[in-house]
């Protein structure tokens, strides 16, 4: 899964007063970036680079964890044992992805508890796609196909991110993500090829609801993307929002044909001259509304995370107490 939220944080003012030494360090840092070198955790980096990464990586991590909720909703109601096992494995993967990413964010000097506090207090964002509900079983396949498909488009360039711990986490994630998209498509294909008319209609309904939110996952248009230029300069971001979105549309239209579903956009049309599909305007007011906290499930999602964290407090404390007791015993022996 993926966050577009890296583009929607508040724009921070860059510190302009620098010492001579800092300016020299920054010059060497820029040289490394220009040469395509990686930055490691203990290397010197501009404060703004560090902040940008903490925001982006932690929002990405939060998205993976919150992303477990809409799919977890269907684990107990998966139609077959096979689909249940697949869904369990996928949701477990999302949890794992969240953990790789939290660990990467922590290398920048922010503690796990600080990161979680930011999520639980609503200060940090996560991908707004997870604020939509999963109403039917077809939503699960559609999330795999469209949402994970969009995520993969977004994530593959991040494997070359200049910040090495993030890039390494992304390589691991991308390796696992392909299964997510394929299982989703496979599940929809079974319904479209062997399903009842009602099941086919269910798939079409799910695609209709997830199509536009999936396109929004790539973030605001390049012209309005607040962090894009600096992130590109620093090699945190490699391909622009609009270019990735176009790539996703081009790939998905062909897949929809194989599946036998239509995409809910009357303006979707092959453009011979551009060699791309044209598509209709995106309702960005809906995007900003959901990012701003007013999507269908924002409150429910955050409440579920806070509850899980609070309910787990005694387990965390007990495990620590046990570890301390064992350590004392060992010392005494």
């Amino acid at each position: 899964m993926y966050t577009q939220a890296m583009d929607v944080g508040p724009k921070e003012e860059r510190k302009t007063v620098r010492t001579v030494e800092e300016a020299e360090l920054e010059r060497r840092f820029d040289e490394k970036i220009d040469a395509g070198d990686f930055i490691e955790a203990k290397d010197w980096m501009p404060e703004h680079y560090r902040k940008t990464l903490v925001r982006q990586i932690s929002q990405h991590a939060h998205s993976e964890i919150v992303g477990m909720l809409p799919e977890g909703n269907w684990i107990t109601r998966a139609p077959t044992l096979k689909r249940k096992a697949i869904l369990l494995a996928k949701v477990q993967d999302e949890g794992g992805h969240g953990l790789y990413l939290y660990a990467a964010a922590e290398t920048l000097g922010t503690s796990r508890d600080q990161l979680l506090d930011a999520l639980h207090s609503g200060k940090a964002k996560y991908s707004s796609i997870f604020n939509y509900p999963t109403l039917t079983w077809a939503d699960i396949g559609t999330i795999g196909w469209l949402v994970d498909g969009a995520a993969i488009m977004n994530q593959v360039p991040l494997c070359r991110c200049s910040y090495a711990p993030y890039a390494r986490a992304m390589i691991r994630i991308c390796r696992e993500e392909s299964f997510h998209q394929r299982q989703g498509f496979d599940s929809l294909l079974v319904m479209m090829q062997h399903g009842t008319p009602e099941q086919k209609a269910m798939v079409q309904d799910a695609v209709n609801r997830w199509w536009w939110p999936s396109l929004m996952m790539f973030g605001p248009p390049d012209t309005e993307s607040t962090h894009s230029a600096q992130s590109m300069r620093w090699g945190i971001k490699r391909i622009s929002n609009d270019d990735l979105r176009q790539k996703f549309v081009d790939a998905t239209v062909e897949q929809a044909k194989v599946l036998g579903v239509s995409l809910p956009d009357p303006l979707l049309k092959w453009n011979e001259e551009r060699q791309h599909y044209d598509f209709g305007p995106i309702d960005w007011s809906e995007f900003w509304r959901v990012v701003g906290g007013d999507g269908p499930c924002n409150r429910e999602r955050l409440a579920a995370r806070v509850k899980a964290w609070d309910d787990g407090a005694w387990v965390r404390e007990a495990a620590l107490a046990h570890a301390r007791k064992q350590a004392t015993k060992e010392q005494a022996a």
Binding site: A89, Q92, D93, G96, L99, Y100, A103, E106, R112, R168, A169, R172, E176, R316, A319, L320, H322, A323, Q326, A327
Partner: peptide
């Protein structure tokens, strides 16, 4: 291959299995 939080060594090994060797 990465890092994780765990209360003690035994817990770290168990969590590492789940987080880093699912396949």
């Amino acid at each position: 291959c990465g890092s994780l939080h765990a209360p003690d060594a035994q817990g770290a090994i168990q969590l590492a299995r789940d987080v880093y060797t699912r396949r």
